[in-house]
């Protein structure tokens, strides 16, 4: 028993189609993939929000910001 149903390559390749593992779970994989993608946006936005908070708290005098502008 193998994860893609192939136990030997001694076959006629015209009779072979998909060879990836766990065939039949494509839709579940798609759902997991979608969840991963959505998780990424959520995690990224949380991270960015935190980063912006830090930026807002930094350099209250504006001196370093002026230096950054001067540096272009």
């Amino acid at each position: 028993m193998s994860t893609n149903g192939m136990s030997s390559w001694a076959v006629d390749l015209k009779d072979v189609a998909a060879v990836y593992p766990f065939q039949g779970t494509e839709f579940i994989m798609f759902i997991i993939g979608l969840a991963f993608w959505i998780w990424w946006h959520v995690a990224q936005m949380r991270m960015e929000k935190e980063e912006i908070h830090h930026e807002m708290d930094a350099d209250a005098s504006g001196k370093k910001a002026k230096e950054a502008i001067d540096r272009y």
């Binding site: 028993m1 193998s2 994860t3 893609n4 192939m6 136990s7 030997s8 390559w9 001694a10 593992p21």
Partner: peptide, 15 residues
């Protein structure tokens, strides 16, 4: 992930 799949097209190889 590939457990049990043939490692080679030749006979006698471990999977």
């Amino acid at each position: 992930m590939l457990w049990g799949q043939p490692s080679s097209p030749y006979e006698g190889y471990a999977t």
